[in-house]
Design a protein around this nucleic acid. Structure first.
Length: 534
DNA sequence: CGGCGTACG
DNA sequence: CGTA
DNA sequence: GCCG
């Protein structure tokens, strides 16, 4: 970052005793260079390395644009699938349906990820109730079965996965589904469009077990869990700190503890009670003004970007344009901890705006040893990126490949109006990992799963930190061919990656998505982070 | 018939 | 088990 | 419950 004389900067990341007192202070640039002379507010001048300075109050050029637009972006509310009166027009077209025969579900997923996906606003209003119903069905399935994809006895929640994909399709197709495929009278889409709901949804909503595709009642799933009482389980599972499993156990045991005002002590007491106390507020949509207010408190970092969605939380994604955002062991060499120190309210029932301390609410920190981030392989590559055979070989499979090296905090924020909101803060580890971090934290969850599923099919491995080759577990040194560019009218670019080498030359989300689209622009519809509603 | 996203506290 |  |  080139600073200019006279610019106002902020000092950060100094580790000496003297330097620590300077961290966070503003100064004016007197001379520029590898080291800059800067003048502090009191008039003292000090010499600070360029990489320990950031322009005060500076954001990426699109920052304000982003937070403004994202806060306004449309979200179809799950559960609002109810009669939207648009049925007749949507159904009228069904007789003229072009044949979708041969459009497999995977083909449909591809459609979602290609040019049909997430056009401005939302694809096609006629499909909105269908998408909402599928999302709702997904949530009910998770509420009664959990989301298990791990460990024996529990089974993979295929129903929830398929419902989420189906919702993505319905949300992405820009014309009425009835035009795209014939709607069978007993099918989901037909029922939803004609009555506002469907049999499966109605059963879930009334707490009864649904009917399977074989027309048999799904009283219990393969893990023996009851499929009933879905609304109660779904509601309970929304508590920050309580998941589907615990919600199921509580409901099934007929423990009616969350009804009374007093919330009797159980399970994870302390901070869970705070989550419960703020339950209603934490379900409210967060306004753009509130998102902006929360963002202000993180502005000490250069290049901070806010994603305030009109949802139920605010995500702050911070990065530095040139430097790793945590560079050593101590708190002074960390971005997240000093920031939290600034934001945290004192324990003991302080009033005013800020982040609730862990005594009063759930506050989860995610941090890795920063010194590890700096370790480099002999060739200069980041040591934590999976690339050598050795790491995989000495572990049980090809499994243990990497970590998520972005520091994070999840908590509850009280704003100036006294309202409580969920807040997530993510600090990008290295500047070049920003596209992967933003891809991940922009979501949705389903989009992440679709993209990562695609990466697998291409022999790749996509995480919040990068995109690497992921050869099958066996003998090492296998090559993975990756198509970087296959756009018409351009020179085709392929690269052969050895072992777990990272995919090169991905400096933007667009380039990452192009690789995942086999070098094409098939995913152009989601290059813009605001278009990723699926 | 195995796999279904990936990671951390 | 919880979280993103 | 669908795909490779």
């Amino acid at each position: 970052m080139q600073l200019g004389v006279g610019e106002v900067v902020r000092i950060f990341g100094l580790t000496s005793d003297k330097g620590r007192e300077l961290n966070g202070r503003e100064a004016t640039v007197l001379t520029v260079g590898d080291r800059c002379h800067v003048e502090l507010a009191g008039g003292d001048a000090v010499s600070v390395r360029n990489c320990n300075l950031v322009r005060a109050g500076e954001y990426d050029s699109d920052d304000g644009w982003n937070v403004g637009r994202v806060a306004k972006r449309q979200r179809t509310e799950p559960g609002s699938a109810s009669s939207s009166g648009s049925s007749s027009t949507a159904l009228a077209a069904s007789s003229a349906a072009p044949s979708p025969a041969g459009v497999s579900e995977e083909g449909a997923v591809w459609l979602v990820l290609s040019s049909y996906s997430f056009p401005e606003g939302c694809a096609c209003v006629a499909n909105a109730p269908i998408a909402a119903a599928f999302r709702s069905l997904e949530k009910f399935e998770v509420s009664v079965q959990c989301d298990d994809d791990a460990s024996e006895e529990r089974h993979f929640n295929s129903e929830a996965l398929l419902y989420s994909r189906a919702a993505a399709v319905a949300a992405g197709v820009p014309f009425p589904l009835s035009q795209w495929m014939p709607l069978g009278k007993s099918g989901f889409a037909y029922q939803i469009l004609s009555s506002g709901s469907c049999e499966a949804l109605a059963k879930f909503e009334s707490g009864r077990p649904p009917t399977g595709s074989d027309n048999a009642l799904r009283l219990k799933n393969e893990a023996g869990r009851s499929m009933g009482s879905a609304p109660e389980k779904r509601q309970l599972g929304k508590v920050f700190g309580l998941g589907a499993k615990t919600a199921i156990d509580l409901v099934e045991a007929a423990v009616s503890v969350f009804t009374a005002a007093g919330c009797p002590p159980l399970l994870r007491l302390g901070s869970l009670l705070a989550s419960l106390r703020h339950f209603d507020e934490l379900q409210e949509p967060v306004s753009e003004a509130e998102a902006l207010e929360m963002r202000r408190h993180a502005d000490f970092m250069g290049g901070s970007r806010t994603r305030g969605r009109a949802g139920h939380d605010v995500d702050l994604l911070l990065w530095h344009a040139t430097e790793p955002n945590s560079w050593g062991e101590g708190e002074e060499a960390c971005v997240l901890l000093p920031l939290l120190r600034e934001l945290l309210l004192p324990a003991g029932g302080a009033t005013g705006p800020g982040l609730l301390p862990k005594e009063e609410a759930r506050l989860q920190l995610v941090r890795r040893p920063h010194a590890e981030k700096q370790r480099r392989d002999a060739d200069g590559a980041r040591a934590y990126l999976p690339r050598r055979k050795a790491a995989a070989a000495r572990d049980r499979g090809s499994d243990i490949l990497h970590g998520d090296w972005h520091d994070k905090a999840y908590g509850i924020w009280r704003n100036t109006a006294g309202r409580h909101r969920r807040i997530d803060i993510v600090v990008v580890a290295f500047p070049d990992e920003l596209p992967y971090a933003r891809l991940t934290w922009t979501g949705s969850r389903t989009l992440n799963r679709l993209l990562r599923h695609r990466a697998i099919q291409l022999g790749l491995h996509l995480t919040a930190n990068g995109l690497t080759a992921h050869p099958p577990a066996g003998r090492g040194r296998q090559e993975t061919t990756v198509v970087l560019d296959a756009r018409p009218g351009r020179e085709r670019v392929e690269v052969a990656l050895v072992g777990h080498a990272p995919v090169p030359d991905c400096t933007s989300e667009e380039e990452v998505l192009r690789v995942l689209a086999g070098g094409t622009d098939a995913f152009a519809g989601i290059y813009d982070p605001l278009m990723r509603n699926a």
